[in-house]
Every structure is written in C-alpha cells, then in structure tokens.
C-alpha cells in the first residue's frame, strides 16, 4: 500500500503540489488524470525519492519512504518514464535487462538477454530490435522498450508515466491489456498517469484527479461518469468550457 499524506512541492515560486493525499491499496491499479503540467509526474517522482517533497509524508507498506534503505526500497519498483529515458549508450536488450546485468538481481548474460527478449515480445516488439540502439527506434518503440525495462525484474510496484502517449490506437490497446495483465497476474500495485480516457477505463480500478496541486476527486472507475464533480466531468468529456481554465 502506498500512502501520500499532505505532500507539498514547489519549484521556486511555483507551487506544484499543495497537499496531495492519496492511498493506493496493494494489488490495485490507480490511474491519475489531470491537465498537463499539474504535477502528476512530480507526484510519482516524490514517491520514488527522485524529488524530495517540501512537506508531508510518503509511506510504502507503512514504512516512511524517506527513511527506507534505498537499494532495497527501489528494488521493489519499476518505472516507465514519460520520455522513455532509455540509456542511449546501451543497446535495447541491455536497457531492458539493466537490472538483471548488475547488482543484487544479477544473472548470467545469456539468461538476462533471454528475459529481455521475452519482455520485448510482451510489449509487441520483435527480437530483431534487441541489438539496435534507442536512437534507431521511433518514439513509440522507445516507449515500449521503456515499458519492457520497467517490468523486466517483475517488480511489486509499477509506475507508468503516460504509457500510451504517442502510440497508435492498436498499440495503445496492447499496452492497456498488458498493464491490466501485470496487475492481475503478478498482483502488482500500479500507478499510471494518462490523458487517454480509453486507457483509464481499460486499466483503472480507481481513478484520482489532480488539479490545482490537490486531489480533486478520487473513486472507483465505475463512478467516473456519475461523480457529479464539475472538474472531473469537464476533463473526461474534454470540454473547453468549465471550472478548469483552458489557459494555464
């Protein structure tokens, strides 16, 4: 279980998070929606300790994330970054198998490569991309390699930052199914950021909407259409008119 309590974060004068409270139960799939630039990525990075919150606490299974032993803590997580964040000095399979080639999860090279190719297949990529370099791939392919890397070590907790942005509708469907599968099969806890309402309905158990630095609404995906919350309604129907200003 992941709990964010009153998390604040500013960059200079800009207050991005102003008291985020959110709970993600173990084995559930939480989707965070919200306009671009509202701080969704910042919130994920706070949980991982990549950004230190100015105020507030983050608990993972009751343990304070800020005081946890970093290596053991991070070994439980997989993360897909918004831009893929592939290492461009390493080939595709070495990216995917990064964790399996060093550190506590290290295993023989041939085995690591095999696992990498299997994970690539799961995200809809053929084995012949394994020896390419990230710069030789299209944006959508890089995204999927990033996804394969995030799931390679079968983490308990997986964060997906806009997993389907930049993918064609069919590939988006494949990735949505994959995320759903990972949560159901592996029993992983997932936190996904997306703007894509099809994705939301496909992968979410629960949905939270971030706006103005706080969680404006949270609830089960079934209640998405009957929330009565004007912010949420405007967002899910993509209306220019409403309480959320179009110019931010």
């Amino acid at each position: 279980m992941i709990t964010l309590e009153n998390v604040h974060k500013s960059f200079g004068p800009k207050q991005v998070l102003r008291g985020v409270d959110l709970t993600i139960p173990k084995g559930e799939s939480m989707v965070i929606i919200g306009g671009s630039g509202t701080g969704k990525s910042v919130a994920l990075k706070c949980v991982l300790g990549l950004i230190t919150p100015d105020q507030g606490r983050i608990l993972v299974d009751g343990q304070d994330a800020a005081r946890a032993e970093r290596d053991a803590f991070l070994a439980r997580f997989g993360m897909l970054f918004q831009g893929g964040a592939l290492f461009d000095s390493l080939s595709v399979w070495q990216n995917v198998a990064f964790r399996l080639l060093r550190g506590s999860l290290k295993r023989p090279k041939a085995e690591a490569r095999e696992i990498a190719i299997e994970k690539l297949r799961r995200v809809g990529l053929t084995p012949d991309v394994a020896d390419l370099f990230p710069s030789e791939l299209s944006g959508g392919m890089q995204k999927r390699v990033g996804l394969a890397r995030a799931i390679a070590a079968e983490p308990e907790i997986i964060f997906f930052d806009e997993p389907t942005t930049g993918l064609d509708p069919i590939m988006s469907g494949v990735i949505n199914d994959l995320i759903r599968e990972i949560v159901v099969e592996m029993g992983a806890t997932a936190m996904t950021i997306t703007h894509d309402m099809t994705s939301v309905r496909a992968i979410a158990d629960k949905v939270a909407m971030l706006h103005d630095g706080v969680i404006k609404w949270t609830g089960p995906v079934a209640q998405l259409d009957s929330s009565g919350d004007p912010h949420l309604d405007q967002f899910i129907h993509g209306r220019a008119e409403g309480p959320i200003a179009a110019v931010r």
Binding site: K45, L48, G49, L50, R70, D71, L74, A75, F77, G78, M79, F81, Q82, G83, A85, L86, F87, D88, F98, R99, R102, G103, S104, R149
Partner: peptide, 16 residues
C-alpha cells in the same frame, strides 16, 4: 543530456 532526458532518474530507480 542524460539528466535532461530523465536517464539519471532512470539509473537511480534501477538501483544504480
């Protein structure tokens, strides 16, 4: 460039 493209963040999350 690694910093700007989140590769440094990715390294950290991969326990390196």
């Amino acid at each position: 460039t690694m910093k700007v493209t989140e590769q440094i963040d990715a390294l950290v999350t991969l326990s390196t």
